[in-house]
């Protein structure tokens, strides 16, 4: 059983009247990758800012590597690295100066600093850009440089606030690779994101956060399995009656009306239940117009727990034909 490295208890944070964080508690094990998944304004950055000592602890407790964030901020700072949500690079410093400045802030010995800069610039593939001013880097390069900066001091815990926001798919995937690599070398990762796939692919555990509260948490696979075997989406001639009638079936965990259709969460293999449901509906004079079926995704987990889409996407988008062909 690995040790707990981050422990947060009853954390509350207000900005004036806005209660941004409402009684959050969680623990992260040493060596874990833990994600906060939540929509804009959920309170993710606020939690990170409190844990990284940039904001005071107003109420509750937080400790990192055994040091209380409020009592020993200096000790905490020595053990963490941060990649902020917004770009925080000095536009008029070069790539290597940026890293050197960071190393000096943490009082790194010169030799170690030099070799670390060399190594990290290689890892994040900026070797050709060593002496380029950061204002001349592309968005993805800037992000990679910030990640390298966060790693300069080999922190016990690395905080990544939306590490791949606004990046192209290739760059995102490469950054995920770095994160995995860093983690394998022993750094605990706490990241926030509002990308479902990112949370799903990267994390050992996810906490879904909304309105300043953790609504659920667990391993990605467990969160998805908890939703049942399959999701079935139907468009029918009478959606509300369809829910009432189909819900008499035992395998149907829940039915919910969407904009144009209904979504059923089922506890058995959907391919077997679906013909029965269609027959049942037809017997009751309800015609089925469209069928789609898929395994629950993180999106569905999120919608299930927060009652809303994280992005402005209709339910149909969640059911892209690619996920499992079912239209007829």
């Amino acid at each position: 059983m690995p040790d707990t490295i981050i422990s947060v208890n009853g954390l509350i944070h207000r900005y004036g009247d806005t209660e941004a964080v409402r009684n959050i508690s969680f623990e992260i094990a040493d060596g874990e990758i833990f994600s906060f998944l939540g929509p804009n304004g959920a309170g993710k950055s606020t939690v990170i800012n409190v844990l990284t000592t940039l904001l005071p602890v107003q109420q509750g407790h937080a400790s990192i590597a055994g040091f209380d964030v409020m009592v020993d901020p200096g000790e905490v700072r020595r053990r963490i690295g941060i990649v902020f949500q917004e770009v925080t690079l000095d536009r008029d410093m070069t790539v290597s100066e940026t890293l050197a400045f960071h190393g000096m802030l943490y009082d790194m010995p010169r030799d170690l600093m030099k070799s670390r800069i060399q190594e990290l610039i290689g890892i994040v593939e900026l070797s050709g850009k060593r002496d380029t001013l950061t204002k001349h880097l592309s968005g993805g390069m800037k992000r990679r440089l910030e990640i390298a900066r966060g790693l300069m001091t080999r922190p016990r815990v690395l905080f990544l606030d939306e590490p791949t926001i606004g990046l192209d798919p290739q760059t995102r995937m490469r950054i995920w690779d770095y994160i995995h690599q860093i983690n394998r070398e022993g750094t605990t990762i706490f990241l926030t994101t509002h990308y479902m796939d990112e949370a799903d692919q990267l994390s050992d555990r996810i906490g879904i956060i909304d309105h300043g509260q953790i609504v659920t948490s667990g391993k990605p696979i467990d969160l998805k399995n908890a939703l049942g075997q399959d999701l079935i989406y139907l468009e029918t001639t009478d959606n509300s009656s369809a829910i009432r009638i189909a819900s008499t079936q035992e395998a149907i965990i829940s039915g919910e009306q969407k904009k144009n259709g209904v979504v059923f969460i089922v506890s058995e293999d959907g391919t077997r239940i679906l013909p029965r449901i269609i027959d049942l509906l037809r017997e009751n004079g309800i015609g089925v117009l469209t069928i789609n079926m898929k395994k629950p995704s993180m999106d569905d987990v999120f919608v299930h727990h927060t009652g809303r889409e994280i992005r402005d996407a209709g339910p149909e988008k969640g059911f892209s034909p690619k996920s499992r062909p079912g239209r007829r």
Partner: peptide
């Protein structure tokens, strides 16, 4: 205002 001071404030300096 540019967020550059965050790096410094979050460091042990």
């Amino acid at each position: 205002n540019w967020g550059l001071l965050r790096e410094v404030f979050a460091s042990p300096l």
